[in-house]
Design a protein around this nucleic acid. Structure first.
Lengths: 340, 340
DNA sequence: TTGTAGGCGTTATCAC
DNA sequence: GTGATAACGCCTACAA
């Protein structure tokens, strides 16, 4: 039955009314402009005919598509599915759909995807890309397209954004180690040109200060990427430097997994000889040996909140720009123990 | 610059030509209808003006949206991101975009999402849901909407589909065990109302026959879901039954991970006392202890091929329905060894 | 409260 | 080969 080349005219005809009136009756926003019984007739007609408004035509006319562009580096990075799911769920509840674009961290691809989405008249953007060319932001601004940043901040807080509180998360991690008695704590930091890498590093620094400990440069290595290989390399580097330490705070789970490999190679046992704490980006990390102690982030909620913020901007709600931080949580597992 | 309220008229005006001509020149399909130098002029004008065709308007006129609906159970199930990514990439190359819908395996949700996508005038569907109500298929058929099935077959092969060759995969797994000398091999099967669960079970049966071994009913348990908990429960059940066996072929990685837990509890060491082989659905499974021997499936290619098939149907290419199987591959790791 | 008319940007079908 | 014209389906001033 729901074969749908049935148009507004058909509904209007059946209801014995002009298409314009039918349009008004069907649109919740304008229904009050039409007499109740006519509205009822139109609605009935639409119902029995199985009328579905054509979103394409509507889009062309209203220049709004009920569509949102979501730019992420790569959907197969386990970090993103829960975020995207959160975005989709919240958007769907408001009658919107998400167009997902994978940029692979490539600026050129990012620009292309962005343009294609603009061409499709998306009503706004959720930007979760790693590097974000300010050119894009400028263009979105020029086109008055609402934008919400995810996992990334505008330096000047001029853009709405949602992210996990990385600094606080790293504080939790270091506090956990310190509470167990660790004093010489190393950090394998993520890339410093990425906001998560940078803010976790800052959090590490701040946490040490809070414990009245100065940061030892020998105990910090910056990884070139959030990868297992880099984690492995950096951990080995730390061990080779010879400066003593009893715990590692890794920039994320990938780096921590790399650490496991390097520690095993070096015959350093975890957690007996070395504690490892990390940032929970991934499923199954609790099945490693030993199960990894991590900071858990509410990824799904990051998604829903980002969508919420975007919908508010799209709806033209006034008010100040919102910068939202979601609290992380320490999940203590088997990779941390008091130092010997 | 790429502010784009520049329309076809603008281009036509600048090229000193009628919009219709500009349209022809810009459209590769019809370019040959226009004189070469005029075409050139139009293209130049479009170039300098930064013209971007408006896909919404085009859609309205051509009754095609360059949009495809993709129904999956849940994006956060690690099985799907690579498939979706494959679909998106292939579609993007053809100027299409995917609308992702999560059904959570719920029939009602599935229907709703399907309807919403129909309302958005998608040009076709990729259906990767677990249970698939035939009502949906019927409706798609009635609307002459192309559909491609993923990881699922139409019983009568009446629908194009792409899936990994589950039977063959299970054969590889059992062959691997048999080659090592295992004779008493247990199977923890996935739910039998799900096509992957069923076909892997069939493959298990066939593989045993190929080795001239009858299936021992005591050595087969059917899980209620592809979950760690069920894997745990089923493995314990197998052990409790008391029938001797030296290897387990699990229906997928989740079940295998559950086995690890149950084996450890029972003091059965893997791979010394018990080999485990599984189906690769997930990243990081190689980081378990011991690293899991699995059958790897080309998920990404499943996605690209599905998109390809769909695009062919959308383009109205004639020809028979294609049912495509992609070959799996054995990845031997540490969880399998010869029996003692 | 309802009808009229015009147009969103594009393409298909005519004519010239 | 190119121009004119008319939709595609919907919305919204404006008029009645």
């Amino acid at each position: 039955m729901p074969d749908s080349p049935v148009t507004l005219r058909d509904v209007a005809a059946r209801a014995g009314v002009h298409p314009a009136t039918a349009s008004r009756a069907l649109n919740p926003e304008t229904r009050l402009l039409v007499r109740e019984d006519t509205a009822r007739r139109v609605l009935d007609a639409a119902q029995t005919l199985g009328y579905r408004p054509n979103p394409v035509a509507r889009s062309l006319r209203t220049r709004r598509s009920n569509t949102v562009g979501v730019l992420i580096p790569d959907l197969t990075n386990p970090l993103f599915p829960p975020i995207v799911r959160g975005i989709e769920d919240r958007l769907a509840a408001a009658g919107y759909v998400a167009l997902i674009g994978n940029t692979d961290g490539d600026d050129e691809r990012e620009r292309i995807v962005f343009e294609q989405m603009r061409a499709r008249h998306v009503d706004g953007f959720v930007l979760a890309t790693v590097h974000l060319s300010s050119a894009l932001l400028a263009e979105a601004g020029r086109a008055e397209l609402p934008v919400v940043l995810v996992n990334r901040l505008a330096e000047d807080h001029s853009m709405p954004s949602v992210s996990a509180d990385n600094e606080r998360g790293m504080r939790l991690a270091v506090d956990h180690l310190a509470d167990m008695g660790h004093r010489r704590i190393a950090h394998i930091a993520g890339p410093q040109d990425v906001s998560t890498g940078l803010s976790r590093f800052r959090g590490f620094d701040a946490a040490l200060r809070a414990h009245a400990t100065a940061m030892d440069e020998d105990l910090v290595v910056v990884a070139k990427a959030f990868s297992i290989e880099e984690g492995h390399r950096c951990c080995r580097l730390l061990l080779e430097r010879g400066a003593p330490f009893t715990a590692i705070a890794a920039g994320n789970d990938m780096l921590a997994v790399g650490c496991y490999g390097a520690l095993e190679e070096a015959g350093v046992r975890c957690p007996d000889d070395m504690s490892v704490v990390s940032f929970h980006d991934m499923p199954f990390i609790d099945r490693l040996r030993p199960p990894l102690t991590t900071i858990r982030f509410p990824h799904y909620q990051v998604g829903t909140e980002a969508a919420q913020l975007l919908l508010e901007r799209i709806a033209g709600e006034p008010g100040p720009v919102k910068v939202l931080y979601l609290a992380p949580e320490l999940i203590a597992r088997g990779s941390t123990a008091p130092p010997r």
